[in-house]
Design a protein around this nucleic acid. Structure first.
Lengths: 152, 152
DNA sequence: TATTGTTATACTCTATAACTATA
DNA sequence: TATAGTTATAGAGTATAACAATA
């Protein structure tokens, strides 16, 4: 449990900490997803928003923010960017709320994102072949559920 | 595998993605560590540096940067901050390199960090009681090893 | 009163480029 | 040539405060 390991030639007393391993593993997967999505010219958070809007047509940007742990104020430039690209449309439903919808181009891009994300997922799952991936997913969901994770 | 779940009332098509779960779990643990370290007035990265310097007296800040995936340029203010607090000392060994050492106060703070990190670790492991934590650690290490994770 | 969208702003983290001095 | 430390700077990401319009 307190094995001291070596990293880049240094004794690394945090190498076996769950928090540290989680952070490094997460950064690796995010970096991979980021470069895998390069062809779509979308960042991971934008791809995720396309998927969420596609699965929840008519939702508001505040809904998306709550689901992804992104503050209302920070959703503004994200949604504006997707609208500028012609992937998302706003439709007033309420004097204060706007329903979000994917445009045709948005659906096409969303499909591309789904494919890329699936491929990344498959590649990493392949790496874990023979292990209990379902158990891993459950453990991660348990950890993630412990807090109100912010930061999309 | 492609279960669609619900989050804050929205259908969430990414809820079961490994990358997404990793990111959320990592943010939860980092946020917990951040607030748990509040009493030390150190951020997680600073606590980690104290542990690394303590375990590798005489290492350089570039060594630390390589171990944690932090660029040389970004190590400068980090080490300067720890020196200003009187926790770390630099000692020229070479015209261009400086050996890093913990001061007495630095060792005290390092011990406090080790205690806090151990408590956070224990709390999250407790949450996973009955699960294969060794297997989880191995899986995370395998994922983390897939890339050169940057970003300390 | 609470919520939606918005603006403005500040702070952190990360990245690159360039410089110096040393090896 | 390559490395250590440094400076300056730009780009993300995230946080708060405040406001208008609306429910």
């Amino acid at each position: 449990m307190t094995d001291i390991q070596t990293l880049h030639g240094l004794t690394d007393p945090v190498a076996d900490h769950l928090g540290y391993l989680l952070r490094r593993a997460s950064l690796v997967m995010m970096a991979d997803l980021g470069s895998s999505l390069a062809a779509t010219e979308l960042r991971p958070v934008e791809g995720t928003i396309l998927m969420l809007v596609g699965a929840n047509p008519g939702c508001t940007q505040s809904d998306i923010g709550r689901a992804l742990g992104i503050k209302r104020a920070n959703m503004v430039p994200l949604i504006a960017g997707l609208c500028d690209k012609g992937l998302v449309e706003k439709e007033r439903v309420d004097g204060r709320s706007q329903a979000l919808l994917l445009t045709g181009a948005g659906e096409t891009q969303r499909d591309a994102v789904v494919e890329v994300m699936g491929a990344v997922e498959a590649r990493f799952e392949d790496l874990l072949k023979g292990r209990d991936i379902g158990g891993l997913r459950e453990a991660l969901a348990l950890l993630a559920g412990q807090g109100i994770a912010e930061g999309g």
